[in-house]
Nucleic acid binder design. Sequence first.
DNA 1: GTCTATAGAAGGATAGAC
DNA 2: GTCTATCCTTCTATAGAC
Lengths: 205, 205
Amino acid sequence: MARKSGSDGKKTAQVLRAAATRLFAQYGYAAVSMRQIAAEVGVQAGALYLYTPDKQTLLFQIMDRHMDDLLQAWKAESEKPLPVPTERIEQFVRFHIRFHLDRVDAVFIAYMELRNLEKENFAKIEAKRRQYEGLLEKILADGRDAGRFNLCDTKLSAYAIIAMLTGVTTWYRNDGRLSVDKIEEIYLCMVRGLVSRGAALKNQS
Amino acid sequence: MARKSGSDGKKTAQVLRAAATRLFAQYGYAAVSMRQIAAEVGVQAGALYLYTPDKQTLLFQIMDRHMDDLLQAWKAESEKPLPVPTERIEQFVRFHIRFHLDRVDAVFIAYMELRNLEKENFAKIEAKRRQYEGLLEKILADGRDAGRFNLCDTKLSAYAIIAMLTGVTTWYRNDGRLSVDKIEEIYLCMVRGLVSRGAALKNQS
DNA sequence: GTCTATAGAAGGATAGAC
DNA sequence: GTCTATCCTTCTATAGAC
């Protein structure tokens, strides 16, 4: 009642997704109750059902929006004109690290809660993930065709690079020894090696 | 009763851990009930408590044994005499991929269910994980000191390599285009590039 | 060593008042 | 738009029979 004047449907919906994202990331989808989420939002459990038909849809929406954000953000980024000495791969590495470090909770959920999605929802998220992987694969194939990269395997290089870049989210801490910029540089350095097979082979005994 | 003659405590305990491992990996710790596990084992829910004091201990034991197996298996592997042209890093890459592909369920749990461990249990598993990371870090540092590797960053190279190697478990399928042996070779090729910074730099524009 | 039965707590989701 | 109250289900864990 007293609350009514200050409440706002749109806003509550946002707060709900934010709260669910935080809790799902921390404790896991299955371990979090609607009552817990409601407490975080500041409403009673029943009120949540004004904003989501059920818990499963809430999870799916979080993951689906996350994937859309990712694809959309890369689209915007890749349409920027590239400063001359910068390669696409550098742009991708920096983008991926920054984007994922800014959203550790959603990233965690997107990778960990796939198994809690119903079959149909799972397929939708998987398709978007594959689409993103395909973007990197294209960058790698283009670089290979232009003679700039010497790949061990195109698809597996894409998988490996995404795995190592996303892995940053598991150990990064704000108060760690490395700035985000420095981390980007180190990973770029490692990725450059990874896509330069011939060079590495020359080094072998 | 009829069952009594064929039952065996030691065996049931093993079957229990195997069943729990499979179910936790598939649905997640929090989503799996003791009743489900009991059904998989072929007993009633109450009987499980003869083999574990509670669900949490069951999870911890699975993860703890997995880490012990990993550390023990690498110890055995690394004590074997190395065939002459083989480097430690090759041995590690091949070992890590094979070990993890043989235990996808336990690996999945070890990485995904950390957040469901109580604080004290979490610390124990984390310590063992760090110990394993340290083994690779040592291999990298030795190679660097011997002039065989040119690393972008020792610790981050270890993180990156473990992340990309473990990532194989997320996409590998028995009926895929690549044999395990071929996968090992491709990842070895990529790792060789990753630890050969100087070579890669020469390639840059 | 395993079963049945159950205590006691907590879960998702809905109904109806305000 | 939110609350209170509640239905019905499911959960972990225990007690006691066999």
